[in-house]
Simulated scan of single mutants.
Amino acid sequence: MPEPELGPDIVLIKSVATSVNPIDWKVRSGARQKDFPLNLPAILGKDVSGVVTAVGSDVRDFKPGDTVIAMADATYAGIVAVKAALVTHLPDGLDPIEAAAIPLISLTGDQLVRRATQAQPGQTILVSGALGSVGRAAVHSAKTLGARVIAGVRARQLAEAESLGADATVALDDDDAIARLEPVDGVADTVGGETAAKLLGKVKPGGRFGYASVLPEEAAKTRRSR
């Protein structure tokens, strides 16, 4: 493949590490061909950590030699071209290999809460799959926004979920526990399937249900009728 070009707002990064997210193997297998068609040969990948090798003429916040992380396309490469707005400096003390797992999941969790669920201060937001990577990011973002957060996990994970800093926990595989839940202002769902269908019924009228997975058909019908 040719070397990526350096545009005015582009940062070129020599890759140290990348990640494998579900979207990568789903695209690679053809499972998401309709949503993400590929022209072969193709470079996959969404995350990168590495060292800046060059910056475009309009870039002011980065210089060659900076260690950075970014979310971009085609990150399974030796040199990755990224718009400067999608790059940030690697925080002190963070290993660049571990850091390569951060950008996509943290931005997904944040957007799930801010844009899809539209969490507001004082609201009660339930995050399902709260111990997953996107779920953890969603819990953090919701708390940052001042929401009261309920972490939804499996019953065997309840003790571990206490470390997330959520205000409460609920066992998603316990129908009685879900039935006892008071209606919430929003759900940030990372699980999908039947769990999503159950939680959809716990959203207050006028509340929001944001999801990072695929809703079952019965849940989609319920959503359209609400």
Rank of each mutant, 00 (worst) to 15 (best):
K34W: 04
W25T: 14
R154G: 13
G132A: 09
G207H: 12
A138V: 08
T222Y: 12
V16Q: 04
V134Q: 00
K143A: 07
V11E: 08
T88D: 05
V51E: 10
T88Y: 07
G152H: 03
G206H: 08
G165E: 10
V127P: 02
Q118P: 01
M71F: 08
A196M: 15
F62M: 03
G78T: 07
P64H: 03
K46T: 11
Q120W: 04
V149Q: 02
D95S: 14
T117F: 10
A85I: 07
G65H: 03
D110T: 15
L164F: 06
T169P: 00
R136E: 02
F62H: 03
R114N: 13
G129R: 01
V191E: 00
A212Q: 03
E162A: 14
D176G: 04
T190K: 00
G152M: 03
R148N: 12
E217I: 13
T169D: 03
A161K: 06
G45M: 05
G206R: 12
A171H: 05
Q111V: 09
V153R: 04
V55S: 04
L94E: 06
V16W: 00
R208C: 06
K204P: 12
G7D: 09
A179F: 07
G50R: 02
Y76G: 00
V20K: 10
R223I: 14
I105Y: 01
Q33I: 10
V68G: 02
S19F: 09
Q118E: 13
A142Y: 00
P2A: 15
A147F: 05
L104M: 13
T117E: 07
I125N: 05
A42Y: 15
V87T: 05
K34Y: 04
E162W: 06
Q33L: 06
A177F: 09
S15Y: 00
G132Q: 08
D174W: 10
L12I: 04
D61H: 05
H89A: 11
L112W: 00
E3A: 15
P183K: 11
V55G: 04
R28H: 15
A220G: 14
M1E: 11
A188V: 02
V55N: 04
R115T: 09
G206C: 13
G146Q: 04
I13P: 00
R208I: 04
S19H: 07
V153H: 04
D167P: 08
A188H: 01
I13C: 02
L215R: 11
L12A: 01
T88Q: 11
D176I: 09
A155I: 02
S141C: 09
L131I: 13
A197L: 15
P4K: 07
V16D: 01
A101T: 14
L107P: 02
F36S: 07
V149W: 03
E194M: 14
R180W: 02
P4Y: 10
L90K: 06
A77Q: 01
E160S: 09
A142C: 03
T144Y: 10
L158R: 14
G7Y: 05
H89M: 06
L38V: 13
A179P: 02
R28M: 14
A81R: 00
A17M: 07
T88G: 12
K26V: 13
K63I: 06
E5S: 14
S225R: 15
V48L: 07
K14R: 15
P4D: 06
Q157Y: 07
Q33M: 09
P205E: 11
V68I: 08
D58F: 09
